[in-house]
Amino acid sequence: MAFSSGNTSGPMADINVTPLVDVMLVLLIIFMITAPMLTHKVKIDLPQPSHNTPPPDKLLEPIRLKIDRSGALYWNDTPVDELGLKAQIAVIAQQTNQPELQINADDGVAYEVVARVLSDAKSYGLTKIGFTEAQ
């Protein structure tokens, strides 16, 4: 650090620590006020896990629905039209243990086609719907 005598006309090399002390005191006061609030406990009633539920007997094979670029539908690699798709979805929705419907939509397919399939699946009551990557 440089010491200055009163005769120098150049810039001072001393650090002015007053603003730094002011900021540190303000931060200290803020932390002193907010720290007790952080330890305040909020009672939340969380659901407890049930250990009595048996695991499913067997895992069902998922249904693969492929939608190609032109909008054609393939139910487990078998071509199907829209009415056939609705019939298949209705049959699956009737089951108590529904398999997962895995939708594999091509990158170039119109969003309207995918939205229509999702809407049909939801309207028939399918609850397990997923998406897979194109292969």
Score class of each variant (00 low, 15 high):
Met1Ala: 12
Ile29Lys: 05
Pro62Ser: 01
Ile15Ala: 12
Leu73His: 00
Gly108Ser: 11
Thr53Gly: 07
Asp22Tyr: 13
Pro56Cys: 04
Thr8Asn: 15
Leu118Ile: 05
Pro19Ser: 07
Phe31Val: 08
Ile63Tyr: 00
Glu133Lys: 15
Lys58Arg: 10
Asp68Met: 03
Lys66Phe: 04
Leu38Ala: 07
Asn52Met: 11
Asp45Phe: 11
Phe3Arg: 13
Ser123Cys: 02
Asp45Val: 13
Asp57Ser: 14
Val109Gln: 06
Leu85Trp: 00
Val114Cys: 05
Met24Pro: 02
Ile29His: 02
Ile103Glu: 06
Leu27Asn: 04
Gly130Thr: 12
Tyr111Asp: 15
Ser9Val: 12
Glu112Val: 10
Ile63Lys: 00
Asp77Arg: 08
Gly71Ala: 11
Ala35Tyr: 14
Asn7Ala: 15
Gln98Met: 05
Phe3Leu: 14
Ser70Gly: 10
Gly125Asp: 02
Leu20Trp: 14
Gly6Pro: 06
Lys86Cys: 01
Arg64Gln: 15
Gly125Tyr: 02
Gly71Ser: 06
Pro49Tyr: 04
Gln95Ser: 11
Met24Asn: 07
Val114Phe: 00
Ala110Gln: 14
Pro54Tyr: 03
Val17Asp: 01
Val114Gly: 04
His51Phe: 14
Leu28Arg: 03
Ile30Gly: 08
Glu112Met: 11
Ile44Cys: 07
Tyr74Met: 06
Ile92Phe: 00
Lys58Gly: 02
Asn97Gly: 07
Gly130His: 08
Gly125Glu: 02
Pro47Ala: 08
Leu25Cys: 11
Val91Trp: 00
Asp57Pro: 09
Asp120Trp: 10
Asp45Met: 12
Lys86Glu: 05
Thr127Asp: 03
Ile92Glu: 01
Thr34Ile: 11
Ile103Lys: 02
Pro56Trp: 06
Pro36Val: 00
Ile29Met: 13
Ser119Thr: 15
Val42Ala: 04
Phe131Ser: 09
Asp120Cys: 05
Met32Thr: 14
Ile129Val: 15
Ala105Pro: 03
Pro55Ile: 14
Ile30Trp: 10
